[in-house]
Write a protein that binds this DNA or RNA. Structure first.
Lengths: 155, 155
DNA sequence: GCAAAAAGTTAGAACGAGTATAATTTTAGA
DNA sequence: TCTAAAATTATACTCGTTCTAACTTTTTGC
């Protein structure tokens, strides 16, 4: 079983993430609408690297008339602001979104398509080395690993 | 300007990559067809993180009747075999494929959408640490960095 | 070299993810 | 409270991706 990081999703962390997203929107002069708040809340809560469709269906429970365009617009804005990251989905479901923008490792199982988060220490040294070698202004990074998860190894 | 790695694409490297892809297909009991060879050749040669559409149009020069489904099937098989990696394309162009499966850094400019490859040393230590912390069988990994490229910083 | 099974390709259709659009609604600031 | 402009909506549209049935090709064994 993949070692889950010691940090457990809790109300504080979710709230901080939610607040950070809303602040990013405000700072960039985007309007704060109930729909955007709901999308941010869902994204702050989820651990599942959701597709746009999954986000849509989750938010639709609270806002039955929400339009898909609204969801797509909202995640696009959040992505532009660097609050979420777009991942290849590893299946036929289009893109997935990563809400943890701190440096970490995503391990994608090439069998079942699931994505596992792993926290590693000392990833900052990578950022230093990228800075030393390039003139690219890097604002976030993570590591994408591919292979077979423990469950699929047993099957 | 992003520092390009000292390694320059040359005929030997391209040929080795091409051969590796064909061998992976053979080893997995896939048939070697002229269309698959052409896709592999193009992928071995390109440095451009091509979309499926770009692959299709490149191969269509040599095989004017090739079907899109054939291209999609071929890259899907190569992806399943771990010979190429799927990247988010950062635009509306669907996915892009990465043909360099050695550990390295992809820097994606969030303005223009271009993807820059950077080679770093000592990335193997990351693999060791993932192994130490998880039971995930990792076969390849790379680093995804996001930010603004030098060109877009000047504009 | 031939035959056959099965994989692979093809052309075109289908699907659905993602985007566009015009009308309507809502937000935020004065 | 009013208003300008942003945001949402329902629906249509685009296009990337996958499906399908017929046909072709590869590979293996004889």
């Amino acid at each position: 079983m993949v070692t889950q990081p010691v940090t457990v999703p809790n109300v504080e962390r979710i709230h901080a993430r939610y607040k950070a997203m809303l602040q990013a929107l405000r700072r960039a002069n985007y309007r704060i609408t109930p729909q955007r708040m709901a999308v941010c809340q869902f994204l702050a809560e989820t651990r599942s690297h959701p597709t746009p469709s999954e986000i849509y269906h989750a938010v639709k429970e609270q806002f039955p008339t929400i339009s898909r365009a609204t969801v797509y617009n909202t995640v696009a804005v959040l992505k532009d602001l660097g609050e979420i990251i777009e991942l290849p989905s590893g299946g036929s479901a289009g893109v997935r979104y990563e809400t943890d923008i701190t440096p970490h490792v995503n391990l994608t199982c090439m069998r079942c398509g699931r994505i596992f988060d792993v926290a590693l220490e000392d990833l900052d040294s990578i950022l230093h080395e990228i800075d030393a070698r390039t003139q690219f202004n890097v604002t976030s990074f993570h590591i994408e690993g591919y292979g077979v998860c423990p469950d699929c190894q047993e099957a």
